[in-house]
Computed example of a mutant assay.
Amino acid sequence: MTRRRPLSVLVRAGVMGAAAALVLAGPAAADPNNVNPIPGINGEPRGLPPLPGETQAVYQVTGMDSPNRTEKVNVLGTDLGVMWDDGAGTMLTAFGDSAGLGVPNLLAGSVWAWTSNVIFYSHTKYPAQGIVFDGATPNPLPSPKIPGIEISLIPTAGIAVGGVQYMSMMSVKEWGDHGKWTTNFSTLASSGDGGRTWAQLPTTRRANVGGHERFQQNAFVKDDGYVYRYGTPAGRGNPGFVSRVREAEIANIDAYEYWDGRGWKVNDPLAAVPIVEGVAELSVQWNDHLRKFVMLTTDPHNSVVLRTADSPQGPWSTPRVLLEAAALPTAYAPMIFPYQTGSDLYFLLTVHRQYNVLLMRTPL
């Protein structure tokens, strides 16, 4: 793994002290700052969780127990794992809030040093034996981490268009309870060098009003010359919406069309109607095996569910449960592996209790 920001011996020695301080802290709140990613002392069993049914955990992707050893770039714990191909055969994976060592984020009551995003690179095309990272760019889009102003800037979707990488980011103003939070806006960020450096695109910002509140968290999929952008309000247990834009116009917010249930309305986010209900973080992909689009999310019970559709706007099927909430109670954000893998579907899944990401496999 390319070590763009290796941990020093001195900083590494602080792991146990930071973890011990967190263990002595009060009960975890809803925000991601109150976590313990240190295996062996965070109360979670070591190794992959045994799960009932056909959906299984096959690889630890991040953290100190991962073969990727992401702590080498100061990512002891993280979440999400938005994956896409850069158009030239490299898979980019964007993770969200990441716990590391250094100056603690005391404003949020955390003993960890927090970054809001990190990019890892991989050339794994078939993940049956895991996803191997061979490089990383920590914290490419820093956030001030100030509660009430911007506590985080988190990637929720990524896509390559015309040799340029785009991420959809949500600016989180403050965390709430029970899977709810408040955003300032969502925005696109772009990279012209394969994801090594990034810049926000201010003209693409969607403030949390005027219909744009429906697109604070996003998922992307391409079809027939369009980029389809799925959206939900901030948090979980919300309706989902869809818009689209010609690929070349992805950064032109006025060029987007919104699905109103019968057709597409240009530049009118208030016309968008729900295409699904009760969803959280979304991931959408065309699947060659099923010959359908597939959507992964968690439902209001926190079970991982799959829907299918013949067209990007739907209608979407009733949800099929892949993993009951009781089997992995703190799991969230199922993100689909971007390459076709036959009759199996691979996806990343975050486990909040250990605050790291697992690779999952389910038969279709």
Rank of each mutant, 00 (worst) to 15 (best):
W175I: 09
L24R: 13
I146A: 06
A272V: 14
R3N: 15
L188Y: 09
D254V: 08
G14R: 08
G342Q: 14
A326D: 15
V103F: 14
A20D: 11
D299S: 03
N267S: 10
T362C: 02
D65A: 15
V75S: 13
G96H: 02
A189Y: 12
L270I: 08
A333G: 08
P144Y: 15
G211T: 12
A219G: 05
D310T: 07
V75E: 07
Y355P: 06
Y59D: 01
P104E: 09
L270P: 00
R246K: 14
V172L: 02
A160N: 14
L328A: 04
T115S: 14
T204Q: 08
G14Y: 10
T298N: 15
E249K: 02
P319R: 13
A255K: 13
T115G: 06
W181H: 12
T183G: 10
F337A: 07
H178V: 04
I149D: 11
F220I: 08
V11E: 12
K265E: 14
A189K: 14
A136I: 12
V35L: 06
V9S: 01
G14K: 15
G176N: 02
M169A: 05
V273N: 12
W84R: 08
A189N: 08
W259Q: 06
V61I: 11
P338V: 08
G87C: 01
N238I: 00
Q60A: 04
R4Q: 09
Y228D: 14
K72P: 00
D268S: 12
R206I: 00
